[in-house]
Design a protein around this nucleic acid. Structure first.
Lengths: 217, 217
DNA sequence: AAACCAACCGACCGGACGGTCGGTCAGCCT
DNA sequence: AGGCTGACCGACCGTCCGGTCGGTTGGTTT
């Protein structure tokens, strides 16, 4: 047993929780091992007893985030309508964001790091990203094949989709006045499925809009 | 004059350029003043001659990014159709992303920092964010008022909109195989305006989709 | 009871950090 | 000619970083 048998805080989980929060808040480089140790209520050496080094600790957390999220996502895919899959993905992400805000924030922060360091610790992120995009793409393709969705470009739309969901999820769910999940989901699905336009805009019209004035530089 | 009158690299701009790139690549905490000095080809003291401290240097760059972007955005608003405004905003952001990738990356990275440090250096970010959202919202409201857009929630949709545009812009425009701006813009506008669904999905149906299975935790 | 071990701590290390300081030197002003 | 100033450098400062090391302690094994 432990010297002080505090049932409430076994060391390893305490370290992970503190690190998760601090990494999410200040980023990898901005968080020191001392701070983590302090927040976890243990000595710095205790961290090194449980984790080889800072990179390893970080990677464990990133892996945790990835596993948790992808596991939930894969549970969504074996169903009929693509619209249902889409709705579930949106909901899942929003729920995930409010339940595991720190994990998601770490994931997004990590995505935005320079490629050089992104590869150094855990190229797992890139694999996860590809996996996620593949899922979106497959849902889109499925929807198109089943005639539920229009024949948009599945690749490009998957990226846009992941963008909406990522930021919808993490970005402003942790904003000062928290927005109710259901409301956000409803709105997002409405725009996603039905679009903004009151009347359908043909491709030619869209092209015309974009070419109207190109002098943006 | 300078001791070595190198016309090609006046010191201050060289410092700014180096810092811009490194901050965008490695983040604020992950970038050292020595690295910046090295990349700019000057001594560290030269940086402190031009900028009070690290925070100040960073803030100058963030302000530059904000000014550049918002100035361009405001040039877009005085026109008729909301669809045109929307198209221009999308295009503008995509162009901005490919022209000033580092600036945009800094902006996004900064947005994701913990509130504590976000306020410490340049609460300007939050003001910028609000400004940007206000612009989106006003475009949406205008479109709704003119009957171009359906009566979606302007507030929620503005946030989703900014998400798409942010990540569309920065996220994968700097990805390994660069996607052509025109193609991305066309796709994004199509989904935005017309939505994914092959046939219109009434609100009740969307609500049904979302409530179909809520066991996502 | 002796040996062992996981779990942890306090003290410490070399190096890198942000920042400062004294000095140098070219070009202007008088 | 001589003083002044903006621009810059090399050396340096105290601090904090990631990481190591030599204990100590309580529980388990033999």
């Amino acid at each position: 047993m432990r010297r002080h048998p505090e049932v409430s805080a076994p060391t390893r989980p305490a370290i992970l929780a503190a690190a998760r929060h601090l990494f999410a808040q200040r980023g990898f480089a901005g968080t020191s091992m001392r701070e983590i140790a302090g927040a976890a209520g243990v000595s710095k050496a205790a961290i090194y007893h449980h984790f080889r080094d800072k990179d390893r600790l970080y990677r464990v957390l990133v892996d945790e985030a990835i596993r948790t999220l992808t596991a939930a996502m894969k549970r969504v895919l074996d169903d009929g309508a693509a619209r249902v899959q889409l709705a579930r993905i949106v909901l899942l992400h929003l729920q995930f964001a409010s339940d595991h805000a720190d994990l998601l924030r770490m994931l997004v922060l990590e995505q935005w790091r320079g490629g050089e360091q992104r590869r150094r610790l855990g190229g797992a992120i890139d694999r996860h990203r590809e996996e996620e995009l593949a899922i979106y793409q497959s849902v889109l393709e499925r929807g198109i094949a089943r005639g539920e969705f229009k024949p948009v470009d599945p690749n490009l739309s998957a990226q846009a989709l992941s963008a909406v969901i990522d930021i919808l999820s993490a970005g402003f769910l942790m904003a000062a006045p928290p927005v109710p999940v259901a409301e956000v989901a409803q709105n997002a699905m409405d725009v996603l499925l039905n679009g903004l336009a009151a009347t359908p805009q043909p491709q030619a019209e869209i092209a015309r809009l974009l070419n109207a004035k190109e002098k943006t530089a």
